[in-house]
């Protein structure tokens, strides 16, 4: 089973996202970078499938040269190979991103292509589906459980408080959500191995996309209007009368 996992390098903001003066980008000077949580789970899932069925796990990212840091992290977790679709580091719109990914992998015959359900920063909810159509594969999104058996993948996703189940044949594109597993931390030998591994670098061609970002805007900050009811258990009676006032105590 040969598996591809598409991941994306994103900054990990703390309690507030700070914008540059011209509002064209997020200030990342003091921020670390990471992989979106859904995608970290996709790497973990790919490694588990490989451990069960054999094969290889390849990770791919489209981004600037620094994105190789995230590829190495994935290899330290256990991915075998890595592809960097190297750009100037500027943002590509979802159509351009999907085109570049499908172009790069169409000759590579992966059985399973795993994505995150949506990227942490852009949240376009579409790259996986576009790649599936371009490769003529079936596709499922938002998946929180998978089982593979005889060329079929059974996938579950949360719906209406329970789960809904889909079954599609391989090769397939599946986008996953955090919660499907708890990703492992890379081991020290894993990190050492990952350092020495080659990364295949491809320079993608950027097709025109359909969405152009003009500027970023911080959501309006709501002024604080908190009422501190007090400290410790002494504040409980006050809280209770508020819960009552709000109508949550019926008797």
């Amino acid at each position: 089973m040969n598996i591809l996992v598409c991941i994306k390098r994103v900054p990990s903001p703390g309690t507030r996202i700070v914008l540059s003066e011209d509002k064209q980008e997020i200030v990342t000077k003091n921020l670390g970078f990471t992989i979106s949580p859904h995608e970290e789970c996709a790497i973990e899932e790919a490694i588990r499938v490989k451990e069960k069925f054999g094969g290889t796990v390849t990770v791919l990212t489209l981004g600037g040269s620094l994105a190789s840091e995230q590829l190495r992290y994935a290899m330290a977790m256990g991915a075998d190979e890595a592809i960097l679709l190297q750009t100037d580091g500027k943002e590509w719109d979802p159509m351009a991103t999907s085109n570049a990914i499908s172009d790069a992998v169409k000759s590579k015959d992966f059985d399973l292509l795993l994505f995150g359900n949506e990227s942490a920063d852009y949240g376009g909810y579409q790259v996986a589906i576009r790649v599936a159509y371009a490769l003529n594969h079936h596709c499922l999104t938002g998946v929180k459980s998978i089982e593979i058996d005889e060329g079929q993948i059974t996938a579950g996703r949360e719906a209406f408080g329970g789960m809904e189940i889909f079954k599609i044949p391989l090769p397939a594109v599946v986008s996953l959500k955090e919660g499907i597993n708890l990703p492992r931390y890379p081991s020290l030998p894993g990190r050492m191995r990952a350092k020495r591994k080659q990364i295949e670098i491809i320079e993608p061609i950027k097709l025109p996309g359909g969405i152009e970002t003009k500027q970023f805007v911080s959501p309006p900050e709501l002024g604080s209007h908190v009422e501190i009811l007090g400290h410790g258990v002494e504040a409980v009676p006050k809280l209770l009368s508020i819960i009552k006032e709000l109508g949550f105590i019926h008797k």
Binding site: V226, H231, A235, L240, K244, I249
Partner: peptide
């Protein structure tokens, strides 16, 4: 989260929540 809330109690949840539960049961 405190400054974004409508109401806050400052203190240890392990003491406060049982006290709320007890009071709610009495109210019920």
């Amino acid at each position: 989260i405190v400054s974004k809330a409508d109401y806050a109690i400052i203190g240890d949840l392990h003491k406060i929540i049982p006290a709320i539960n007890k009071a709610l049961k009495q109210a019920n």
